[in-house]
C-alpha cells in the first residue's frame, strides 16, 4: 500500500461541506472501490480524503411522498434487508444481492456505486430503469440530477469537487414492474459482463413507460432507447420479443475487454431480453 493520505472524518454534513469548500478531498464511504484502486495503483493517491462514514444524515431508507428515498450511505446489506426496498424496489434488492461478498455488501454503499460511475456498477441500470433522481449537495445548496444525466461519459459524473451525493429518490409508480438480470463470470463475487434492468407499466394489455437500461455494454450505464421504442405500446409477444432482441443487438456497441467479448455481450443481452419478454408474455 502506498503512503496513507490524511483523512478527515466529519460528523456533520455542515463540517463535510466546509472541508470540501476549503480544499479538494477524495470522498470515501465504504471504501470498496477507492481502496482497491489505491492499492492497485490505478488511481493517483489522493492528497486528502474525506471519510463520510459518520455522516448519519446520509443514512436511512424511507418513503417520502410518492418516492422511495435512500440515503447515499445506505449499504447493500441494508438494501437487502429493507422491507421498504423489497416492497417498492425489488430489482434494487436483487442487484444489491449480486454485489461482491458479504463484507463488501456490509461496507459498499449506493452512493458509492453512483459516484464511482463504473460502467459495470450493478445498481446503476436499476436506477436508470426506475427514473431515479440523484440529489447532490454542497455549501452552495442542493440540486437534483436525473439518473439519465448522471453518467455522461466514461467514469464521469456531474458532481463538482465540493459536492457530495446525498440521496437517491426512486419515484413510486403504481403498476410498474422491474426485472433485473446480471451475467457474471461466476455465481458470486463477479463483476458483470452484462447487467440489465427492464421497467414498464402495463396499460390496457400493452406496455407503457418502458425503460431498458444496461451496464457493462458501453463506456457508461445506458438506456437502450431504440429497443425501448420497439417495446413501447407493444405487448410481450414472440414477434415483439424477436424484434426487440434484434434491435437491441444492433443498438449495443460493447467492446472486447478482459471480462468478455463484444460479440458475447450483444448476444447475451439480446437473449436475456428475449427471455424476460418470454417470461412476462407467458409463451
Amino acid at each position: 500500500m502506498p503512503a496513507e493520505p490524511p483523512v478527515a472524518s466529519p460528523t456533520s454534513l455542515g463540517q463535510a461541506y466546509a472541508l470540501l469548500a476549503a480544499a479538494p478531498h477524495r470522498p470515501i464511504a465504504g471504501g470498496t472501490d477507492v481502496m482497491v484502486q489505491i492499492a492497485a495503483e490505478t488511481t493517483p493517491i489522493p492528497e486528502r480524503m474525506l471519510d463520510l462514514w459518520r455522516l448519519d444524515e446520509l443514512r436511512g431508507i424511507r418513503v417520502e411522498g410518492d418516492a422511495l428515498v435512500l440515503g447515499a450511505l445506505t449499504t447493500y446489506t441494508e438494501i437487502r434487508r429493507s422491507p421498504l426496498c423489497v416492497e417498492h424496489a425489488l430489482a434494487l434488492v436483487e442487484a444489491a444481492a449480486t454485489i461482491g461478498a458479504v463484507q463488501i455488501q456490509n461496507r459498499g454503499t449506493l452512493g458509492g456505486n453512483i459516484a464511482n460511475a463504473s460502467p459495470a456498477g450493478d445498481t446503476l441500470p436499476v436506477l436508470l430503469a426506475m427514473d431515479a433522481s440523484i440529489v447532490a449537495g454542497s455549501l452552495r445548496g442542493e440540486r437534483t440530477v436525473a439518473a439519465a444525466d448522471f453518467w455522461p461519459a466514461y467514469r464521469r459524473t456531474p458532481l463538482r469537487p465540493d459536492e457530495l451525493v446525498l440521496r437517491v429518490s426512486l419515484p413510486l409508480v403504481a403498476g410498474r414492474r422491474v426485472r433485473y438480470r446480471k451475467v457474471g463470470t461466476r455465481r458470486a463475487q463477479a463483476i458483470s459482463k452484462v447487467v440489465m434492468a427492464l421497467a414498464w407499466r402495463e396499460d390496457g394489455g400493452v406496455w407503457r413507460h418502458v425503460r431498458l437500461a444496461l451496464g457493462s455494454v458501453a463506456p457508461t450505464p445506458i438506456r437502450a432507447t431504440e429497443t425501448e421504442r420497439v417495446l413501447e405500446g407493444a405487448a410481450p409477444r414472440e414477434t415483439v420479443a424477436d424484434h426487440a432482441a434484434a434491435v437491441l443487438r444492433g443498438e449495443l456497441r460493447p467492446i472486447d475487454d478482459v471480462r468478455s467479448t463484444a460479440a458475447y455481450r450483444k448476444a447475451a443481452a439480446a437473449r436475456v431480453l428475449h427471455r424476460l419478454l418470454r417470461e412476462e408474455g407467458g409463451w
Binding site: T185, T261, A263, Y264, A267, A268
Partner: peptide, 15 residues
C-alpha cells in the same frame, strides 16, 4: 467459457 459456448449456440464468431 460462456463466450465459447454461446458463440456455438448463437452462431456468432467465437473468441
Amino acid at each position: 467459457s460462456p463466450e465459447r459456448i454461446l458463440a456455438a449456440l448463437d452462431g456468432h464468431e467465437p473468441p
